[in-house]
Design a protein around this nucleic acid. Structure first.
Length: 581
RNA sequence: GCUCUCAUAGCUCAAUGGAUAGAGCACGGGCCUUCUAAGCCUGGGAUCUAGGUUCGACUCCUAGUGGGAGCACCA
């Protein structure tokens, strides 16, 4: 990565110029205006305020030391403004980097660090709602970006398949479908139940329970039966889990998401007893009002066992922590869920540390905001949800209407139209989710979710399709760009081209930043910026009819680099790039 | 009541403490005989309030206002 190398050089120079300055405090940024260079550092300013020296003089000293490094990467370092040192990259080095990019080589380092990420984690017996899109897609993007950076990444789908809510489903199925039936009929009755029906039963229960709170006791009793291994409870539960998993797999396939391990809450069923024992033995658990709790210094307590002896999700998540850390020995464990679980995971992490499981692992909870309706909020319990399939169908339909009016070189067949509409529709829905900072809520608005113009997935896909169209018509074999195309230096190329060149090389560092801050929206931003700059170039200059052979080759080279980065960048977001649209 | 989180243009979002706060949507005006107009150009518009820290604050601290979430038998 370019930034790492520049940072190293600036630190070395700073050590010589200002021996008292902590090299760790060296800051590096991309100036907004490219006239201010590719990188800039304001450390002379920071230092000057401490030593009361002239910041301009300090900056001069730093720039001089930096020049002495004679790095092939740096063309010049100059002092500007109140005391910034602006660093300009050497065009030739830049070209070499971009040449690698055009062939998909990004200089990723193999760090061999192992990272576990838990994401998606829908509840069984409910259809896949728009709300589950966030965890699924943010998690998927983080997964892909980490792999890109060279981490060994393990994905886990922590299916919500255990706990009292499932008692509701068991109770309802028994009451409405199985009461008074013969044992041999049960299988055929169950096999006709759909996830939609299970969800309806759940919603109905909650409505009825509002006027009849006693029902909740029934649900609890059924969950207890399940936990104790009651045959009927087990039977219904297994069926609900199976039919839900099939439904989820269908959605995942459509989203292009694959999660290696499906280890739902029920997987930890037999591992919880041990967890409870360990906490008791270490004196970390205490009886309170009949329940068994763990206490914390600056947080409310969390419950290991309810007064009826059943476990809670706190118990299960602790068992999951223990299992994952023992099984995979990760350097880092990330859990992606809604932010309403922030406190819960702070408790789980703290408890894990108290008992000594987390000594060699960094724990991170990424809590995302939820989809919000302008008129109020979604609630599965009350049946106010938007199912993801509905959204995807509508998005694909809108994309298909646009594809039909495409000005692409050739007509699309029916099949091609369908494929493109799927890539564009699904890509648009995903991008709309990922472009938001995970922490914030996302206002659900049909027109926005299905937007195919402006800052959207399809906008980036469109820029890609245009660039590919040019490369096709140039009949260029991939990876066959001649070195001759590198003769044009920045400064000799147009501003539209230079802006692209000085943006492209940042791709890997943007991915790094997005991973470090768990924010795929940073990559969205970058790709949109790049697509936008390419569109500006596209509208200002010709590639295929460039004035000189040299210029044409240069523009083809740049187009190939842009195409590659757009495609690979979208892929990290889990979005496909159609060759034509 | 306590804790966490958010507050930037009419709307939806950007901006590791740095140089003139950027986009998109919407609205007004332009650009297809030329590589895809899902595009480009152009115009108006914004940091919740009051203090503080800093050479420098949208960013950090304190208080307040407003939205969201959580706070033991739901997950």
């Amino acid at each position: 990565m370019v930034r790492q190398e520049i940072l190293r050089l600036v630190r070395k120079a700073a050590e010589r110029a200002f021996p008292s300055f902590d090299p760790e405090k060296v800051s590096l940024e991309h100036p907004e205006d490219i006239a201010h260079g590719d990188y800039a550092t304001g450390i002379a300013l920071a230092l000057a305020s401490q030593t009361k020296e002239n910041p301009g003089g300090l900056a001069q000293a730093l720039a001089a030391e930096l020049e002495k490094e004679q790095s092939p990467l740096i063309e010049k370092a100059e002092v500007a403004g109140p005391g910034f040192v602006n660093i300009f990259l050497n065009p030739e080095a830049l070209y070499r980097i971009l040449l690698d990019f055009s062939q998909g080589v990004y200089g990723q380092s193999k760090k061999q660090k192992r990272v576990i990420i838990e994401y998606s984690s829908p509840n069984i017996a409910k259809r896949f709602g728009i709300g589950h899109l966030r965890s699924t897609i943010i998690g998927d993007a983080l997964y892909r970006m980490q792999e890109f950076l060279g981490y060994e990444t393990i994905g886990i789908n922590h299916l919500g398949d255990w706990g009292t809510p499932h008692g509701i489903v068991l109770y309802q199925v028994q009451k409405h479908f199985l009461t008074g039936k013969e044992e041999q009929e049960v299988d055929s009755i169950l096999s006709q139940l759909t996830v939609g029906q299970l969800e309806d039963l759940y919603v109905r229960f909650n409505t009825e329970a509002e006027s009849n709170p006693e029902l909740k006791e029934q649900a609890k009793a059924w969950f207890k039966k399940l936990e104790q291994g009651d045959k009927r409870a087990r039977h219904i539960w297994e069926y609900a889990r199976k039919v839900s998993s099939q439904e989820f797999e269908r959605i995942y396939a459509r989203l292009g998401v694959h999660i290696e391990h499906v280890l739902g809450e029920s997987f930890y069923e037999d591992k919880m007893k041990d967890v409870v024992e360990k906490f008791k033995k270490k004196g970390l658990a205490r009886k309170s009002e009949g329940a068994l709790i763990v206490e914390f210094e600056h947080m409310p307590p969390a419950m290991l066992l309810k007064s009826d002896g059943t476990t809670t999700y706190f118990t299960r998540d602790l068992a999951a922590m223990n299992y994952r850390i023992n099984t995979w020995k990760p350097h880092k464990l990330i859990i992606e869920t809604g932010m309403e679980q922030n406190l819960h995971f702070r408790q789980v992490f703290e408890a894990s540390r108290q008992i000594g499981w987390a000594e060699n692992v960094e724990l991170a909870h990424v809590g995302h905001g939820m989809y919000r309706l302008a008129e109020g909020k979604f609630s599965t319990r009350k049946g106010r949800t938007i199912h993801l399939e509905e959204v995807l169908n509508e998005a694909e339909e809108r994309a298909r209407l646009l594809v039909a009016t495409s000005e692409s070189e050739a007509e699309f067949t029916e099949q091609e139209q369908k494929e493109i509409a799927a890539m564009v529709g699904v890509g648009g829905v995903k991008y709309n989710d990922l472009m938001h900072n995970p922490q914030g809520d996302v206002l659900f608005d049909w027109d926005r979710v299905l937007n195919l113009k402006g800052n959207s997935g399809p906008y980036i896909q469109y820029a890609y399709a245009r660039s590919r169209s040019i490369l096709r018509q140039a009949e260029l074999k991939e990876g066959s760009l001649p070195e001759a195309s590198l003769k044009l230096a920045p400064g000799k190329v147009s501003p539209e081209e230079e802006r692209i060149l000085r943006l492209l090389y940042r791709f890997p560092e943007v991915v790094q930043d997005a991973v470090d801050s768990y924010a795929p929206n940073m990559l969205c931003e970058f790709l949109f910026d790049l697509a936008q700059k390419y569109n500006v170039f596209y509208n200002t200059h010709r590639v295929l009819e460039a004035a000189t052979k040299e210029q044409k080759e240069f523009r083809l080279f740049m187009t190939a680099s842009v195409a590659r980065v757009l495609k690979d960048g979208l892929a990290l977001l889990g979005i496909q790039s159609p060759e034509r649209m």
